[in-house]
């Protein structure tokens, strides 16, 4: 059975209290719960037959968040020092409502819904994660972006006292970490702001209190611990493009046909792997979400706009 054919997206219902042992079990339960609703389609769009939810301790203890160090175990080890309350978000640029907002006020009255997404890192490893999130469109529209808003730019917190990676002498990143989307990408129903994972509050190491999640793009696009949202008419210069423009572009759509100069993107290692089996599987165009997002790039040369 292949699910996720329905491009009709979110309602505000939420699936709760699910045990995340594996997807088959999960589907058995939730399918019974919400049979017939369009939610199944949107919550699990893009999932493949053999996708199983990655164990929670791997999702929360093995990831990249260079603000806390460059090893994939650093975020889990160091992020507990981060204070996420109070959390202020600055909104600026081409919008009617700009200024400083308390994070709680921005998401007030909105319910996070569950989205089980495939997650593909540019380093060629991947996971399947049950995020809890809010439609990005819903969040952005409250600031009433003007007609000049062609792009939206996000920035991560800069606080070296709590983020040891930011005071490292041996990092060449120009903080704050910056990412961006075209407005039509941001308004795509798949784009969400994540506030939780595995039915719990988002842990610091995964980008608390909120982070972007755009599952058809490489993981580095999904910027964490966001404190700034800016609407602009110019394409933002994202951090990795700024560091190495020959290797990382603005779009960063998952694309097996365009290799990273230093490794192939044709396949990926699904975590966890074992010592003698890297659990390699072919990478899908747009990470399996072509049906939902390919139309955004019609007529564009994706080799040029990688």
């Amino acid at each position: 059975m292949l699910i996720g054919k329905s491009p009709k997206i979110p309602t505000s219902e939420i699936i709760s209290e699910t045990t995340y042992l594996n997807r088959r079990k999960f589907m058995g339960q939730s399918a019974a719960l919400i049979a017939g609703s369009s939610l199944l389609g949107s919550a699990q769009a893009g999932l493949q037959e053999d996708d199983e939810i990655t164990p929670e301790d791997i999702v929360t203890q093995f990831n990249n968040f260079y603000e806390f160090g460059t090893d994939k175990s650093d975020p889990f080890e160091n992020a507990h020092t981060l204070t996420t309350d109070p959390w202020t978000v600055n909104v600026s640029g081409e919008a009617k409502k700009t200024g400083d907002f308390a994070f709680e006020d921005i998401i007030k009255g909105m319910t996070a819904e569950e989205r089980i997404y495939r997650f593909r890192c540019v380093e060629a490893w991947s996971m399947v994660v049950p995020w809890m999130g809010i439609s990005l469109k819903k969040i952005l529209e409250q600031f009433e972006p003007t007609g000049n808003a062609k792009y939206v730019e996000f920035k991560t917190l800069v606080r070296p006292e709590e983020m040891p990676g930011q005071s490292s002498f041996f990092s060449s990143i120009d903080w704050p970490y910056t990412e961006g989307l075209r407005m039509d990408e941001a308004y795509n129903p798949l784009s969400i702001m994540v506030t939780g994972v595995f039915g719990k509050e988002l842990p610091n190491q995964n980008g608390a209190p909120w982070r972007l999640m755009v599952p058809w793009k490489y993981g580095f696009k999904s910027v964490k611990s966001i404190v700034s949202i800016r609407f602009t008419d110019k394409e933002p210069l994202n951090t990795w493009q700024q560091l190495q423009a020959s290797e990382y572009g603005f779009y960063a759509n998952v694309n097996p046909a365009v290799s990273h100069p230093r490794w192939s993107q044709a396949s990926e290692r699904r975590l966890p792997s074992t010592l003698f089996n890297t659990n390699r599987r072919p990478t899908l165009p747009f990470n399996g979400y072509a049906e939902e997002v390919a139309h955004l790039y019609k007529g564009m040369d994706l080799r040029k706009f990688f």
């Binding site: 791997i58 975590l271 792997s273 074992t274």
Partner: peptide
């Protein structure tokens, strides 16, 4: 490696080959 073989991801992490 012995740890890893006894219980996957316990010795060399979620990507043991790497």
């Amino acid at each position: 490696i012995a740890l890893e073989i006894a219980q996957p991801t316990s010795g060399l992490g979620p990507e043991p080959a790497e």
